[in-house]
Simulated assay, not measured.
Amino acid sequence: MKYIARAADGTPLLGDDDGFVPLNAADPALETVEDALAQAPDGLPSPADATAERVAAADLAFGFPLDQPGKLWGIGLNYADHAEDLDEVRPEEPASFIKPPSVAAGPDTPIRLPPADVTDRVTAEAELGVVLGRTCSNVPEDDFESVVAGFVPIIDMTSEDILERNPRFLTRAKSFDTFLVAGPYIAVPENVEEFFDQVAVRTVVNDEVVSENTLDGMLFKPPELLNYLSQSTTFQPGDIISTGTPGAGVIEDGDTARAEVEPITDLETDVVRQ
């Protein structure tokens, strides 16, 4: 599996399980993360052939993996167990919402809870994100791999007390700054079907597993989600579909939130109160 990333200083990176190199050291024609996204469906160069030595992931600080976040689509109640936990009726179609790019943060940025008088019950939700590599619309499920660049761990946040006051407040409840953390890198698997067979998602707060599930627990798999959403919107490189969470955990000032997304990696960040 190969990886696309941005260092905390903004340098685009290409990596594999042995480490990362500057993206343009692997291919001078690839100058930005978006360049790599567009090439990913056809295959990326090998970091082993780069003109720079690989640096281990543990020795790097990663930022948000995209130069410019695009549309950030979220999916609600997409795990059957989670819908049952919330006593919600299973949706017959994907329940979707969209978040502004201003919410996006990387592993180098803590989740910033708003003041308690604005919201005092925020949850963190681990999710698998689908990153688009090409402009597309009306995408058949069989064409999923031809337009998707890769997959990224995500921590999505919800202000539950705001949402409970009125379900029409969903956009506000989801749109505070830093309420979507993604990273540390985008995974580009060689075989997407085999990758899907290995996917497991866990929401972890302070090292305690709050919930976990596999792709088999989804009501709507990623190709179905892209097919459905692309019927009403045109997707562009850097857009992300966050495919839903197996369950949410309440977070407070001083906590640590983690999304464990196999077989990619863990995404962990601190929680602070503004």
Rank of each mutant, 00 (worst) to 15 (best):
V152F: 04
E31K: 13
D67N: 02
P94C: 09
F151D: 04
V131F: 13
S46C: 06
G183T: 00
D81M: 04
L219G: 04
D216I: 04
V89I: 03
S96N: 03
P45S: 01
D156E: 14
I4W: 12
F62W: 04
F235L: 15
G183Y: 00
Y3N: 05
V261R: 11
R273N: 12
T234W: 03
T214A: 04
D16Q: 09
F195P: 01
D270F: 02
F196N: 02
D59F: 00
D81N: 10
P184C: 01
E224N: 11
A40P: 05
A56V: 00
L180Y: 03
L163A: 14
A124C: 10
I186R: 05
A36N: 10
G183M: 01
A259G: 05
L72F: 09
S232Q: 13
D108G: 04
D207W: 03
F179I: 08
G217R: 03
P101H: 05
P69N: 06
R121T: 12
D27L: 10
A5E: 07
E194I: 01
R172M: 14
A25W: 06
D17W: 02
A80C: 00
L66E: 06
A5C: 08
V139R: 14
E92Q: 14
T119K: 05
E190P: 02
T233M: 13
A187Q: 10
D207R: 13
V192D: 03
G15C: 04
D67W: 02
D16C: 05
V21P: 03
E93L: 15
V122N: 03
